[in-house]
Write a protein that binds this DNA or RNA. Sequence first.
DNA 1: AAACAATCTAGTCAGTGTCAAGTTTATATG
DNA 2: CATATAAACTTGACACTGACTAGATTGTTT
Lengths: 204, 204
Amino acid sequence: MKKKSYHHGDLAAALLNAAEAELTENGIERFSLRAVAKRAGVSHGAPAHHFSDVKGLLTALAAKGYERLLDQQSKREAEKDGDARAKLVASGLGYLEFAMANPQLFHLMFNSSIPDRDDERFFNVALSVFDRLVDNTQAVNGKSPYSDEASMVDLMASWSLVHGLAELIVSGRAERPLNLSQLSQEDREAVLSAILGRVNQSVE
Amino acid sequence: MKKKSYHHGDLAAALLNAAEAELTENGIERFSLRAVAKRAGVSHGAPAHHFSDVKGLLTALAAKGYERLLDQQSKREAEKDGDARAKLVASGLGYLEFAMANPQLFHLMFNSSIPDRDDERFFNVALSVFDRLVDNTQAVNGKSPYSDEASMVDLMASWSLVHGLAELIVSGRAERPLNLSQLSQEDREAVLSAILGRVNQSVE
DNA sequence: AAACAATCTAGTCAGTGTCAAGTTTATATG
DNA sequence: CATATAAACTTGACACTGACTAGATTGTTT
């Protein structure tokens, strides 16, 4: 890390860190590129040399978020390898865990029309999250969602439920019905797993 | 409707209409209070006399959106009275229908932290949507979500699935897997109903 | 050592929401 | 009916925003 030279050394990364800090502190609504530059100790025009505009910066940040989301899901899945359905639920728990730990980032990634979906890196990493769901769905019901319509319906139901629940939690709307903030982590996970388990139940 | 007097007559309503038009045309990201005032044919300072600030205006608009959402759901439910579960699915279809018909408004209502949730009118009308779900859930499984934990789990699963699916559709992420835009309305509703039906299935 | 490209600063511009002061109109009061 | 008061609206100012430009500084290549 350089001391105080004219050139920063790794300003792009520093800006991303500053951007995430600003995002978590102020939320997307009051996000300011100039504040990010100031936090990184650099003039307000500097970011333009690393990110085309504020949309570019936030797209890169969102892509980083997707990577961490993937990690979180992988970690959860790894604990439960064996039963395919348990793995699917674990993957969903990882999704929820990420959302609860990074509400503002989650909001940026999904709830805003800010990130540029055509950005290559963003597109690919978002696709990876989807592919993981494709694999897990196929492992559960034995048919590829791409070739089997009913399997795709299952996939969309899983996806919708997990994502919707994350939205309701992050936005605070799930708090009154579920009281999540007052539960122990164990109880909280039990409740969330129960909800996730209500979709695509196998009828035996 | 007055012609061109200094006083507008019903500027509050005119501003809400202008705001919705601006919202649908430009999206929440490029929403501008001054543009709304200009569209309503009034100076940029005028809105302050009817809405405390831009947040106040958008909160009122979001509340109006909730009312229309309720209407849409009522209409759908009315077609299927009888079977409780069919009614629940119909209610969900109304939810999706509203989202698809008013994507930007839907986004304002749910995906932004703009509306003031403590605003009385907003709070009440949002509660009405929730209460409807409470009633429908109770009708399906016979137990009140407020007193029965498993019933609340069912409710949250229904809510999450419907809302999540709406999010995925509105944001465009459901398009690639489902091809909704290329289907006839009949086929589209069949697919959506199938997905909605994958939650809280009765195991007989 | 010199040329060149990349990086960063500093100034400017149009646009934003909000506030304060002043103007016009409607309404209530005598 | 006249007049005081309140409400509705305009106008101008302010601090802030993101983007653009020109110029200063530094790293790299030849």
